[in-house]
Design a protein around this nucleic acid. Structure first.
Length: 563
RNA sequence: GCCCUCAUCGUCUAGAGGCCUAGGACACGGGCUUUUCACGCCUGUAACUGGGGUUCGAAUCCCCAUGAGGGCACCA
């Protein structure tokens, strides 16, 4: 391994400058977030600059909403950029679609020097050529000198760059030396027939013009690098250093992608249909209507479901609607999904950083400052990792426990901006009490919001819990006693309720068993925060009303016939 | 099919030829604590893909096999 590559030799002369260059064709997903994080870390670590550039050269798939979403996700993660789009301000020069005039002269230059040429095949013709090559068991390579090229036509054409024939080699900062034979490449298209540059061309021109010193990207780009290097050579530019990071996969070793949502929804739908003993999705769609029509869930089109199930489309929005209709949660893939699931930005970032990177010293929970301190290209690994949600949950719980109540108030408020929960009704005083109760026992803010529902809305008592703890085992009688004990409280505060709580716990043969009846009555289920705190927050009136209601709902069992 | 990359517990990883009877974390099992659930604490199970070399000595270096992943678009 060449040692000279280990230290950024540019440090002395040129300041380090990295970039994150997403294409705005969807949400920011966790893989992209990790790429952004590593670039951010590297730039900050070396006192350099971090650039965000929107690669919207695909006119069909790029959307302004997607770009805005990606930027806001980056902001939520706290990855700030020095140069790039201004959130909420529309396109600027960091959107490639605004730079068409910049690319043009460079393409002309290549054309004039004979390093690029026009190609007139239609996409259909190219597909046919590929198929023919495959049939002949020969790899298809489009080169300028190949036989059978289409003659000059009169429609729009593409422009291809004549890739050099020599072997291209370079030193990757993570993988070491990479060499690829010259005949492995096509003459890549650098301008599409719509006049837009391709990614390959725009990325090279922009990285050069923007003074990018280090390109840190996912390993799926590894085979693009030789092509890009060919372009740098053609322009006589000094290429940036390249570092390709290992990929992130699902636990089942498949690539994490937005299609996973469609897959999961499809799977759930099939189970649902089997359960309903109805493979006819037309009917299924109709049966979904009552619940689907309510609130924000739009009507479900039965034909769309058919297409979806038949894998004719992977529409994530439809997947979300369908899953919501049948009460199934889709896997989190995008940063936004994790935000909606109640993960803290710092926890997500910390977890993501540990896939493919190790700070050493058995360190795991790291603040940003610590990450910055420990980060380097040398400590990035070569092996792809799997995204273990269980570990993320644990880590998020750790973060929740380590964050101050003030910090959590802010996090919960931010969380409630993207998801609806009755917890949103809580003022800061109430919210702080809720947080105090749940901080020790929750892994995500969503769990907190979900489990604390009964403080804000009347719970419907879980049937099996009610039968187990109130209707049986002398639970009903115990609850009557509990009611009297509560009634005896002089004041509804901690001081006067504590001894009463102690008596309630002591009730019956098994310590704490009777208290379960009270828990079920006030919270609706067998699990809640400690009762004393729960009752205090609920208040006297609501507590007693719920006890009365439970008492009425579950009449005492008739005495068991003796055996 | 062709090209490229990678290979340590189920998962994330430590390991830069002797510190390795392979360390940590998650998950899982057992125990303690306990008014439920958690949290916390203690504890256990669990890995160097296989085969050849090199070397006094290999998880660490080399080769082959196998496996996994990526790429082969007018997507990025």
């Amino acid at each position: 391994m060449t040692n000279s590559t280990n230290t950024p030799s540019t440090a002395a002369d040129t300041p380090v400058r990295t970039r994150f260059a997403p294409s705005p064709t969807g949400f920011l997903h966790v893989g992209g977030a990790r790429t952004a994080l590593f670039n951010w870390l590297f730039a900050r670590k070396h006192g350099g600059q971090f650039v965000v550039r929107i690669e919207d050269t695909d006119q069909v798939r790029s959307t302004a909403e997607s770009a805005a979403g990606i930027l806001s996700d980056l902001q939520w993660l706290g990855l700030d950029w020095d140069l790039g789009p201004v959130p909420g301000a529309g396109k600027n020069e960091y959107f490639q679609s605004m730079r068409l005039d910049i690319y043009r002269p460079y393409i002309d230059d290549l054309l004039n020097r004979g390093l690029a040429y026009e190609a007139w095949e239609t996409p259909q013709q190219l597909a046919a050529m590929r198929m023919a090559a495959e049939k002949a068991k020969r790899p298809f390579r489009y080169r300028q000198n190949m036989p059978g090229r289409a003659p000059r036509g009169d429609g729009p054409c593409v422009i291809r760059f004549a890739i050099p024939w020599e072997e291209i080699r370079f030193v990757d900062e993570i993988l070491g030396e990479i060499r690829v034979a010259g005949d492995e490449h096509d003459d890549i298209i650098i301008r599409k027939s719509d006049g837009f540059p391709t990614y390959h061309f725009a990325v090279v021109v922009d990285d050069h013009l923007m003074g990018i010193t280090h390109v840190l990207r996912a390993q799926e780009h590894l085979m693009n690098t030789p092509k890009h290097l060919g372009l740098y050579a053609a322009f006589g530019w000094q290429p940036p250093r390249h570092a390709h990071m290992p990929l992130v996969f699902n636990m089942d070793n498949t690539k994490m992608s937005k299609r996973d949502k469609a897959k999961a929804a499809r799977h759930a739908l099939q189970l649902y249909a089997r359960q309903k003993n109805d493979a006819d999705f037309q009917k299924l769609a109709e049966s979904l209507q009552p619940s689907a029509g309510v609130g924000s869930i739009p009507r479900v089109d039965s034909r769309a479901i058919g297409d979806f199930v038949a894998k004719k489309n992977d529409d994530t929005a439809l997947a979300a609607v369908l899953a919501a209709s049948i009460g199934v949660t889709l896997p989190e893939i995008d940063v936004h999904d994790f935000r909606r699931s109640g993960y803290l930005a710092d926890a997500l970032l910390n977890f993501i950083s540990l896939i493919g990177w190790s700070p050493g010293e058995n360190r795991e929970i790291l603040s940003r400052a610590e990450m910055l301190d420990l980060f380097s290209l040398q400590t990035i690994g070569k092996t792809s990792g799997r995204f273990d949600r269980k570990k993320l949950q644990w880590m998020n719980g750790e973060y929740i426990r380590r964050t101050s109540v003030d910090g959590l108030v802010a996090a919960v408020r931010s969380f409630l901006q993207v998801v609806e929960y009755p917890l949103a009704d809580a003022d800061d005083v109430i919210l702080r009490q809720i947080i105090a109760m749940y901080q020790e026992r929750m892994a995500t803010l969503a769990e907190m919001a979900e489990n604390s529902r009964f403080f804000f809305t009347e719970p419907k008592i879980d049937r099996s819990a009610g039968e187990k703890f109130i209707a049986r085992n002398a639970g009903h009688a115990a609850l009557v006693q509990i009611r009297d004990l509560l009634l005896s409280a002089a004041l509804w505060n901690s001081e006067s309720l504590s001894p009463i709580m102690e008596q309630i716990i002591a009730l019956g043969e098994k310590r704490g068993a009777a208290a379960q009846a009270l828990r079920v009555a006030v919270s609706g289920g067998a699990v809640s925060p400690p009762l004393l705190e729960t009752l205090l927050l609920l208040g006297r009136d609501r507590t007693l009303a719920r006890v009365d209601h439970a008492l009425a709902l579950f009449k005492a069992d008739p005495p068991e016939p003796s055996q």
